[in-house]
Design a protein around this nucleic acid. Structure first.
Lengths: 114, 114
DNA sequence: GTTTGTGCTACAGAAAACATAGCATGGAGT
DNA sequence: ACTCCATGCTATGTTTTCTGTAGCACAAAC
């Protein structure tokens, strides 16, 4: 079941791009997968390891979806971002700094390990 | 079950803020709820309507979570963003324009209704 | 005192995700 | 040729999450 802008998705019959995007990102592990690929290409199993040993069934499903959506490809060296996938992930990277700020405001200072 | 930076979440034992954020956003409807509140306060039922009549059970759960996380409050006029919730949502608004671009690249020109 | 709006909760069924096992392919080494 | 290992999955049964529908409790308006 491919999710493409223009086609209806869960929670939206119009296929409006932002809704399609929300539908994709609002599934468990999707954001995390994009995130983990931010620095280097990873094999299926490396990716699985970094994603807390998530179920391969789901990982495979997500990767299929991300490839269908044009965010991820699978070439020499494993799975990695396409150009547009990198663009999307760059936006996510912004959230990293932002989240630390949020963490402080919410009353919890998080200290990075090491 | 409150999700707070510093406490472990699904897929991350460290409670690293970005992971907590991904855990929250990577649930169905959460992105959508933040999105629908971007312009005005909405009552529970208005919000439900805009979110494709999502199940009130889940809506209630999400709202609890978003309040616990400090993104949403419930005051005069219904549910709405806190300052930090607005900040987060501003980032999401960026995705709207971006998603249209993505839609074109992926080979589907989406025309907004009306 | 009945109707309308609001903010939910209850509950049964459907869908998604999980954990674990294991298979098929391909290359390296011996 | 054959074992060994990495890689990319699929299969299966269980658990968790989400859905859909019904309905309750409170408050204000009429």
């Amino acid at each position: 079941m491919t999710k493409t802008p223009g086609l209806p998705v869960r929670g939206s019959t119009t296929g409006r791009p932002i809704m399609v995007l929300f539908d994709i990102l609002g599934q468990r592990w999707t954001l995390r997968i994009l995130w983990e690929l931010r620095e280097e290409r990873l094999t299926f199993r490396e990716l699985q390891n970094r994603c807390d040993n998530m179920s391969p069934t789901i990982l495979n499903g997500r990767l299929k979806q991300l490839r269908d959506s044009g965010f991820v490809d699978h070439e020499e060296g494993g799975y990695g971002h396409t150009d547009i996938g990198r663009e999307l992930t760059d936006h996510l990277v912004v959230f990293d700094g932002w989240a630390k700020n949020w963490a402080e405001k919410i009353g919890m200072e998080y200290e990075a390990p090491q």
